[in-house]
Design a protein around this nucleic acid. Structure first.
Lengths: 217, 217
DNA sequence: AAATAAAATTAGGTATAACTAATTTTATTT
DNA sequence: AAATAAAATTAGTTATACCTAATTTTATTT
C-alpha cells in the first residue's frame, strides 16, 4: 500500500501527464504540489524503489503500469466522491473538491466500485471531468477551451480546468455551470479577453485566463 | 485542527471513559491503541498543551470540554459512516468498522450534519451503538450484557461491545443481529458459559467472553 | 566556447509519532 | 517496613516527509 504522500505524488504526476505531453520534471511536480524540489527528488527515489514510476533525466518521470493503475484509482475515487458530495449530500460546486481530496485516500478495495454503483455509474464528475471506470478506462475527454472558439459560435460548457473555490464561485456568480450555453460575441485583440453571452443574459467580458479554464463541446 | 494521531488518542480516551468509571491511565490508553506506554506519555503532553485533556497522576487522564467535543464528533462521524456503508453501499456488518476508521477523520465542518440528514438522522449504528447528535447529546445506551441475564429470560440483542471482524462473523454464523431474540436456557457454573436459544433455532452454547460482548434490552 | 541562468541534486536539519532500554515513581506483597 | 512488582517517565533512536543552503549538472545566452 501507498502512503498519503505517495498517493498525492502519483496523482500529481498523472494530472501533469494528462495536461500536456512534455516530459515531467521534478520542478513541475514540485510546482503542482507546492513542495520544494529537493523533497520531490527524495520522493522520486522512493517511488522508483517501489516501482511506481521510472525516472530518466532525458525522459523525465513516467508512471509504471502499477503506478498508473494506482493513480487512476485515486482519481476515480476523487471524482466519484465529488458526485456523491454534490448529488447526495447537497454540497456546493466549490466545496466538494477539498473534501474529495481527503476521501480519495480511503483505501478499501471495494469502496470505489460500490460507490460507483450506488451513484449509478456516472461518467463525469460535477466539474465535467471524466470518471475512470473500474477497469481504468476513461470516457472521452474534452480538450477545446472557450479561448479557442471562433467569434460568433455558440457552444456548451463541458468541463472546467480549474476546480478552485474562487474560480467556481465566479462561475456561479456568472450563471455558468456544466451544460450552460455560451456564445462568443467578440475577441478583444489587445489582451485576448472575450465578450460572451451566457445563455439568454446580457453580454459580459471575461479574461483570457478565464476562457482558457473552460472546456467546451 | 487535530492530527490523525491526536484524533485516535482522543477517540480512545472517550471510549475508555464510556466503558468504565475507573481512572484512565497511560497504560490503559497504550493498550487500547496497541502503542507503547512511552509513546502515550509523549502524546499526553501534547494533548495537554493543546488543552484537549488534563492529566493528574491521581485522577488519571480526563477530556476537557474541547477534547470531549472533538472526540464525540469523531465517534459521531464514525457511526454515521458505518450506517452509510451498510445501508447505502451494501457492505457487510464485519467490513464497515475498518472503513469507518478512515472516513471518520475527514474534516469538513458540515460533512457530519449533511451525512446525518442524508441518512435520515439514525439513532444507532449497525452495531447498536448510539450516534451522538449534532449537539453532542447521546441517545440512551444499553449497558446490560447477555452475561447478566437470568436463566429462562428472553431478551433482544440491542448492541455489541466488540466490532471486530471475527466476532461479527461468528454472530452472522449463529444468526444473531441487532434485534434478534435470545433466550438464556442454562448457565454452566464451571466457566460461566451459557446455553441459549437464538430465535427459533436449536440450543447453542456460548462462552462467557462471548455473552459479555452482547448488550441486550 | 565561455558566461550565465536554471534545474537537479546532495548534505544536513526539523517536526511528528512511533520505538527500545534504562530509570524513577507508585503500588502491592511478604 | 522492606522487598518486589508494576506503572510511569526519561533519554535516546528511527522512519517519514518535509525543509534550507550549497553544490553539481544541464540548458540558454552572449
Amino acid at each position: 500500500m501507498n502512503t498519503l504522500s505517495e498517493e498525492n505524488y502519483l496523482k500529481a504526476i498523472l494530472r501533469i501527464s494528462q495536461k500536456s505531453d512534455e516530459k515531467i520534471t521534478p520542478t513541475a511536480i514540485a510546482e503542482a504540489l507546492g513542495n520544494n524540489a529537493a523533497s520531490v527528488v527524495d520522493m522520486i527515489r522512493k517511488l522508483t524503489d517501489k516501482q511506481l514510476i521510472e525516472y530518466d533525466k532525458k525522459k523525465g518521470v513516467r508512471l509504471t503500469q502499477q503506478g498508473l493503475k494506482d493513480s487512476v484509482l485515486i482519481i476515480r475515487k476523487h471524482r466519484l466522491w465529488e458526485v456523491f458530495l454534490l448529488e447526495k449530500l447537497g454540497f456546493h460546486w466549490d466545496e466538494i473538491h477539498d473534501i474529495a481530496e481527503e476521501l480519495e485516500h480511503v483505501s478499501n478495495t471495494n469502496l470505489a466500485d460500490r460507490l460507483d454503483q450506488f451513484l449509478g455509474f456516472p461518467e463525469y464528475d460535477p466539474h465535467g471531468d471524466p470518471i475512470p471506470k473500474a477497469n481504468g478506462k476513461l470516457p472521452k475527454t474534452f480538450t477545446v477551451s472557450l479561448a479557442d472558439v471562433k467569434t460568433g459560435v455558440t457552444c456548451k460548457v463541458a468541463a472546467v480546468r480549474d476546480t478552485s473555490s474562487p474560480f467556481l464561485q465566479y462561475l456561479v456568480k456568472l450563471g455558468i455551470g456544466i451544460g450552460t450555453q455560451v456564445q462568443v460575441l467578440e475577441r478583444i485583440e489587445f489582451d485576448q479577453s472575450l465578450v460572451i453571452r451566457i445563455s439568454e443574459q446580457d453580454k459580459t467580458t471575461v479574461s483570457q485566463r478565464f476562457s482558457e479554464s473552460i472546456l467546451i463541446s
